[in-house]
């Protein structure tokens, strides 16, 4: 396969960026999308140019590091797939593919396709945890967890924190990410004591980071590589709203 890629090139956060076209030849359909970029980078290095910087690490769809908007869609055209698990067999010979970084005012571009997603860490810092100091835990079997709740918690807990939801949201909202954590911890018995405080603190941090609000469009869940359901946002909304009117405790 021979393809053309148009890639966002930007030297650093302060620099201006632009789309640059490259031809990449001899691509095998069994290559992953990132291996195609590896080939391009070999070409660029051989020519003495700076290779394209992009984030990637595990290349098996779990670490959440890879983060490319491909033809306008976060993680590309395949549903339930991270960029690193996207294979070139889903493209055609002669295609032109546009590749851009996640775009959100809260994700400054560091170089080319790499953005700074530390805002998401700060949302977790604000309350995305259960306070369980090491050594304080009762026996694991002491509290039964209905399978339904354990499964529901798991479905929300598989969020890989890649930020595709934010990159895809027309409002630049991070509510799917935030809701997933609130939902994961909020349906488990261990997460009940801090449940409402957690929801409030995370939503406040979400807003303070400059993410937009959720208008329930559902674009986030459509691009989510692990299929976090949209209802986690409603779960978070309900927790926040029921926590608002309480008296100061």
């Amino acid at each position: 396969m021979n393809i053309t890629v148009r890639i966002w090139r930007q030297h650093d956060q302060a620099a201006a960026g632009r789309m640059v076209s490259y031809k990449v030849d001899g691509i095998s359909p069994d290559m992953s999308f990132l291996e195609m970029l590896d080939v391009l980078n070999d070409q660029l290095t051989a020519a003495g140019d700076d290779p394209v910087a992009f984030d990637h690490d595990c290349r098996e769809g779990i670490c959440g590091m890879c983060s490319l908007v491909i033809n306008g869609i976060a993680h590309g055209p395949e549903a339930l797939t991270t960029t690193c698990q996207l294979y070139m067999r889903h493209f055609d010979d002669g295609d032109t593919i546009d590749i851009e970084p996640w775009r959100s005012e809260s994700f400054p571009i560091l170089r080319d396709l790499i953005v700074d997603r530390s805002a998401m860490d700060r949302i977790i810092q604000a309350g995305g945890y259960i306070s369980a100091p090491t050594g304080s835990a009762p026996d694991a079997a002491a509290t039964l967890v209905p399978k339904k709740n354990a499964d529901r918690a798991f479905d929300a807990a598989v969020c890989i924190g890649c930020g595709a939801c934010i990159a895809a949201c027309p409002n630049g909202s991070g509510m799917l990410f935030t809701g997933a954590k609130a939902n994961h911890l909020g349906v488990l018995p261990q997460g009940q004591p801090e449940r409402h405080e957690r929801a409030l603190a995370m939503v406040n941090q979400h807003d303070a980071e400059g993410f937009g609000g959720c208008t329930q469009i559902g674009e986030c869940t459509a691009v989510c590589p692990v299929g976090i359901p949209l209802d986690v946002i409603s779960f978070l909304n309900a927790d926040v709203l029921s926590a608002l009117p309480r008296k100061t405790d």
């Binding site: 148009r6 789309m19 546009d98 851009e100 005012e105 409002n171 937009g212 674009e219």
Partner: peptide
């Protein structure tokens, strides 16, 4: 807030002209 979060461009903040309506937006 949405405009500030997206550099004033909302759902049209990408350079590409492909898939401007996203994956499933009604």
């Amino acid at each position: 807030r949405s405009r500030s979060a997206t550099g004033g461009k909302g759902g049209w903040r990408y350079e590409t002209t492909k898939n401007r309506r996203g994956v499933q937006r009604s």
